[in-house]
Every structure is written in C-alpha cells, then in structure tokens.
C-alpha cells in the first residue's frame, strides 16, 4: 500500500442529492468512488492525485434497473453482476451482459459499476463498444438538473469525457429495439479471465433478402476511444456476404482504426485481429 490513508478524505452522503451538492460546492475537488475497482488500484499504487473522495457506492438512486416498454434505464451504480443477472439485459442486450461477464473476476464484477466503466473512459473498457452499438444515452446529473447525452458524443479522447466537474453519470438508457438482430461479441485478451482487452468487438447485424440490411460494429482498444466503424458499416450495408466483401470489409475496418503498440500488444496484431473479427462477424451474418 503506497498511499497514506491519513492523507485522504472520504465521505459517504446518504443520498444522490447530497452527493451532487457536494460536487457543486467545490467543483472538481471531489472524486466519486463507487466499487473502487479503479480508484482503489491507483490509490494502493500511490498514484491517486485526488485527496477528497465521495462514495457513491450503493446509493439506491443509482442501483436500479428500470424497464419500460420503450427503454431500459440502468442506474450507473449497477454492478457487472447486476447486469449479468438481469433478465432483460440478458435477453435483449446480450452484448452488454457478455461484456459484464468478462470484466474481471467475480469479486470485481460484484463491485465494478457500469458508470465507473463509462467515466473511467479507458479505450479498453469492455462495456463501451456495446453501448456504442446500442445507441446508448447517458443521463448526467448535477445540482443544475439532469441532461441526456448520446454516449457516442460523450467520450471525447483518451480518458477524456464531456462530464462537467460537478456532474455524475446517473443512468444509461438503451432503447428496446435490437431484439431482431444477430449479436456478436468477442474479447481478445491475454487470458480467458481477468484480462484487459487487446481488441474487443461488439456488433449487431440483420440480413434480409440475401443482403446485409443493417449493421452496427464497435471496437475497443484500437483507438483513443471506443470506435464505431462507420465506413465499414456503410461498405457492407445492402450487399450480400461473400468472400470479396469480407476482404474489402477487413481492409476498410483496418483503415478506420488507429491501434498502437503498448505493453499488452502490438499495433500490427491489433489491426489484423480487428479485421479478422469484423470478417468473422460478417460471416456469421451470412450464415444467419
């Protein structure tokens, strides 16, 4: 443990309102901590710049999953376990359920939260490609009230977001209109559990009259932010799945991403695997 607990403050207000009041009183001074699976790691390594923390763990307002006929609204404080075990998430948003199931081990799934994954804003975060393809919208809250922003605009750069210094992510909303799609997702990591992605993909697709009717493809760990492959999607839409399409889709997908060499993998490998995953997804649509 490379930090001194005496140097840190932590408060645990009883309500969401009290938390946002605290954030408003000293904008940028308080770091929210939910399950601690990111914050506590930095803290133990002696690398947590923030000295004042506010606990949002288990706030009832953040830990609910509300289902209406149009959408599902997932509290930002819901854990990966909550997501994995929720019936509607499992059946209609399987990409998210799968991502939750391969984020860390069981203990971290019991503490890590969807909101944490979003604001931590790592390009390797497992749940974010799924949010991209489901056109997720985020509800942000502050003393100024709530605002709703599309997730695709939220994540602006490497570990950067549009969250204001007095704001919290309150909930994630997913429209219930993807049940007719083929869902495909894979995580490529250094091992089968407890791995940080080298590349991950979440994709939805639908075939009609022998051609790809609609397709949505997102990748993680191949750019500073999780990426929707707009060009690749445009290329394949309206076309039949055949070997030549797979080749050109691979090429366009690789051109759309900006992978890097780092401690976990190489840019060349990431690009090749990303292309392979896109092709594998399209093949599955073809078989569907």
């Amino acid at each position: 443990m490379r930090s001194n607990p005496a140097d840190y403050q932590l408060v645990a207000p009883a309500s969401l309102q009290a938390v946002v009041s605290l954030l408003a009183a000293e904008p940028g001074a308080w770091l929210p901590i939910a399950g601690g699976t990111d914050v506590m790691v930095q803290y133990a390594a002696g690398k947590l710049p923030a000295r004042k923390l506010v606990s949002i763990w288990n706030l009832p307002e953040l830990r609910r999953i509300e289902v209406s006929p149009e959408e599902i609204r997932i509290g930002a404080g819901c854990t990966y376990t909550d997501l994995r075990e929720h019936e509607v998430v499992q059946s209609e948003f399987s990409l998210l359920a799968r991502a939750a199931a391969w984020t860390g081990g069981i203990a971290n799934q019991n503490r890590g939260t969807l909101g944490g994954n979003i604001v931590n804003a790592s390009p390797a975060a497992d749940s974010l490609p799924a949010l991209l393809v489901y056109d997720a919208e985020l509800i942000l809250i502050s003393v100024r009230g709530e605002r709703r922003v599309p997730y695709k605009d939220f994540h602006t750069g490497y570990k950067k977001t549009k969250l204001a210094s007095d704001e919290l992510v309150r909930a994630v909303c997913l429209a219930r209109r993807f049940s007719g799609y083929l869902a495909y997702t894979r995580k490529v990591g250094a091992r089968n559990a407890q791995a940080i992605s080298k590349v991950c993909i979440a994709a939805l697709g639908r075939r009609a009259s022998g051609v790809v009717e609609d397709v949505r493809i997102a990748l993680g760990s191949v750019a500073p932010v999780p990426l929707r492959l707009a060009e690749t999607e445009r290329l394949v839409t309206g076309k039949p799945v055949e070997p030549s399409l797979l080749v050109s889709a691979k090429r366009v997908a690789i051109a759309e991403i900006q992978p890097i060499d780092d401690i976990r993998s190489t840019a060349r490998y990431r690009a090749a695997v990303a292309g392979n995953l896109v092709a594998e997804f399209l093949e599955k649509i073809g078989e569907n």
Partner: peptide
C-alpha cells in the same frame, strides 16, 4: 490491486476483494 483474490471476503453475501474496499464502505 484486486487481481489475485487472496484478500477475498464476503461483504453482505457478495464476494469482494477486501484490498479494494475503503472501510467506510
């Protein structure tokens, strides 16, 4: 850092890594 699980305990019936839980929580 929550990777090895040797600090696992049950917190309100849920398995957690106790190295990642601030005592106030």
């Amino acid at each position: 850092e929550g990777e090895c699980g040797s600090c696992s305990v049950l917190l309100n019936d849920a398995l957690v890594n106790s190295c990642l839980v601030p005592v106030l929580q």
